[in-house]
């Protein structure tokens, strides 16, 4: 009787697509999603390094609100995000516009991208030496050009230490933003631009009224990626200041690590992770929406 065999084959065919999904879902489910969900649970307990703790409701979150270190951390995180937007996205777009029309552009693109291949740890080490207030590259350079009065203890005086690290992060993160904008520029439809040019649009006006709006889907992606990455910055800060001195340069990611692994308030640390995740998720909705609208970007 053929039907069973045929039914089995049909069933197999129906399930085949899911077999393709299986390895990926398994890996991500076990190693990423399960731990993340578990962290959400831990955020509602008073777990420490040596005990799993018990359910404490919203205690951790009310403690957050009253913790001055958490407020500093939120403020610094905002600095990071704004700084990243202005410097990485702004400069990235500017560079992409300039370099796409420059003869030596290819080499410069490579140069600006190169720091992105280094690790956060290595970048932290390099800039640690650049910012040394006694002999560092920056201070001695400013001394040479007569701006000694503007120098400070770059990594010790808040909020300058956060700005200094944002600068180091820009050095590393500018390349990828620039590359994405270059891709966006390359994929712009020609017709509207040619039409605008025929109408006499030039330079800034052309850019502002035609190129930039056309570039919007890619801009949304770059903005979202930059935001998410800068919310998560950890290695760089940990190597350069460990969030110090006196917790003045901590961001949410650093506070979370510190509470969980330095003072072992695991439950409290998890609550910071949850807050951070909430913020990132809300911003990501913006990212995903723009991604799924019209254009399949990168």
């Amino acid at each position: 009787m053929p039907p069973p065999a045929g039914a089995r084959r049909r069933a197999l065919r129906r399930w085949t697509p899911y077999l393709y999904l299986l390895p990926m879902v398994l890996l991500v489910g076990v190693f990423l999603i399960y731990p993340a969900v578990k962290t959400v649970w831990v955020a509602f307990t008073d777990a420490t390094g040596t005990s799993a703790g018990s359910f404490v409701g919203l205690d951790n979150f009310t403690r957050l609100v009253e913790d001055p270190a958490f407020r500093t951390s939120v403020r610094n995180t905002i600095y990071w995000v704004i700084g990243a937007l202005v410097l990485q996205v702004g400069l990235g777009l500017l560079l992409a516009l300039i370099l796409s029309n420059m003869r030596a552009g290819d080499w410069l693109k490579r140069l600006f991208y190169l720091p992105a291949t280094l690790s956060g740890a290595a970048v932290g080490v390099i800039w640690f030496y650049v910012f040394n207030p006694d002999q560092g590259l920056l201070t001695s350079f400013m001394g040479t050009i007569g701006l000694e009065s503007l120098t400070t203890r770059w990594l010790a005086d808040p909020p300058v230490n956060t700005f200094a690290m944002i600068f180091a992060a820009t050095w590393q993160g500018l390349g990828p933003a620039m590359i994405l904008f270059l891709v966006g520029l390359q994929n712009l439809p020609r017709e509207p631009i040619e039409a605008a040019r025929v109408d006499g649009a030039r330079g800034l006006r052309l850019f502002w009224h035609v190129t930039l709006p056309l570039l919007r889907p890619m801009s949304a992606v770059v903005v979202a990626i930059t935001l998410i990455n800068n919310f998560k910055v950890f290695d760089l800060i940990w190597v350069m200041t460990q969030g110090g001195p006196y917790r003045s340069s901590e961001t949410l990611a650093v506070s979370m690590y510190r509470e969980s692994f330095v003072t072992f308030s695991v439950g409290y640390g998890a609550s910071i992770a949850v807050v951070l995740t909430l913020i990132v998720t809300i911003l990501s909705v913006f990212y995903l929406r723009s991604m799924f609208r019209k254009v399949e970007v990168y």
């Binding site: 998560k232 949410l252 690590y257 969980s260 998890a270 995903l288």
Partner: peptide
């Protein structure tokens, strides 16, 4: 399915550390 897997990049990585 796409979102499920892609959500893996959204969490701050510190989120995975302790349970992992």
């Amino acid at each position: 399915w796409f979102l499920l897997v892609f959500s893996g990049t959204l969490f701050p990585f510190q989120m995975y550390l302790i349970p992992l």
